[in-house]
Simulated assay, not measured.
Amino acid sequence: MNIQLIRNATLIVNYAGKKFLIDPFLAEKGVYPPFPNSARQDQHNPLQNLPVPINDIIDHIDAVIVTHLHLDHWDDTAKEVLPKHVKLFTQNEEDANKVRSAGFQHVEVLQEDTVFEGIQLTKTKGEHGRGDLVNLMGHVSGVVFKHQEEKTLYIAGDTVWYQSVEETIHTHNPEVIVVNAGANQLLEGGPIIMDKEDVYEVHQATPTATIMAVHMEAANHWGLSRQELRRFAAEKDFSSQLLVPEDGEAYTL
């Protein structure tokens, strides 16, 4: 497999000969207002430009996976530029109907036994924060990829570390795990995605897996920098298992 971080949680995943686009957040820098009730209210989103031309991202896509419909995972630009005939997977029927209303013609809800072009796709659970934040932030999901010619890949999505993430790891034994690890947060309630301690929990649950940390420094409410996560990983002695890509960077795994 080859995984390229575009920006935030937007990934291009080439897996078993198919090109997947994950959580497309494709607007030009600064198009959207800052997320409210959070830091850096003087900074508009996204904070960075796309690192590659948008046509390189959307050309020859076999399928799009949208883990949930928050703006930084499914934005107006994505709705405009993606071909309406592309295969598109969502987490539930509510999201599917909203995507269909934007004109997309081939929308399917991910299940625990979805198969796409010989690739097994398993929807996984997530919690977008802790305590009262779970209800406030709404439903989210992740996905596990499996194919006999590839390593098992787990894209955790917008979730903190909690029991279901641990259960997914123990059930599927992924060799590669992508975590959204920017510790993005509101002014009250704590992180709504993984922070550095959560990433360490993932490592402890599966010490031999390669972990890729994304969703960092791309929207105004980020709370954990790449530099800080790399430093923490060195202190905890798991740098060899952690990738912290810059925007546009790709890895073959």
Rank of each mutant, 00 (worst) to 15 (best):
Glu127Pro: 09
Glu166Trp: 14
Glu197Trp: 10
Ile3Pro: 09
Met216His: 04
Leu21Met: 05
Val160His: 11
His85Trp: 15
Ala205Gly: 13
Gly126Ala: 06
Ser164Val: 13
Gly142Thr: 03
Glu167His: 11
Gly17Glu: 08
Trp74Glu: 08
Met216Ile: 11
Glu166Thr: 04
Arg100Trp: 13
Asp195Ser: 08
Asn173Thr: 04
Arg100Ser: 01
Asp59Cys: 07
Asp95Thr: 07
Val64Lys: 14
Ser240Asp: 13
Gln41Met: 15
Ile119Arg: 09
Val140Pro: 09
Leu253Tyr: 15
His128Ile: 10
Leu242Gln: 02
Asp59Lys: 10
Gln148Leu: 00
His73Leu: 04
Ser141Lys: 10
Thr210Asp: 00
Phe104Lys: 04
Thr252Trp: 05
Ala213Ile: 12
Thr122Ile: 00
Lys151Phe: 00
Gln4Pro: 00
Asp42Lys: 05
Trp161Tyr: 15
Thr114Ser: 06
Asp237Phe: 12
Gly131Ile: 09
Lys151Met: 08
Gly248Ser: 05
Ile211Lys: 03
Gln43Tyr: 06
Arg7Val: 03
Gln105Leu: 14
Val199Arg: 08
Val52Ile: 15
Arg230Gln: 15
Leu243Tyr: 05
Gly138Asp: 09
Ile119Trp: 04
Glu249Gly: 01
Gln48Asn: 14
Gln4Gly: 01
His128Lys: 11
Glu217Arg: 12
Ile193Glu: 11
Val115Arg: 01
Glu228Ser: 05
Glu80Ala: 11
Asp72Val: 09
Met137Ala: 02
Val160Met: 02
Ile12His: 11
Thr208Val: 10
Val81Ile: 14
Met137Pro: 10
Ser225Gly: 07
Gly126Met: 14
Ala183Glu: 06
Arg7Leu: 02
Tyr32Asp: 07
Phe116Ser: 01
Lys151His: 04
Gln41Asp: 08
Asn8Tyr: 05
Ile58His: 11
Val81Ala: 15
Lys123Val: 12
Val176Ile: 02
Val115Ser: 05
Val202Gly: 03
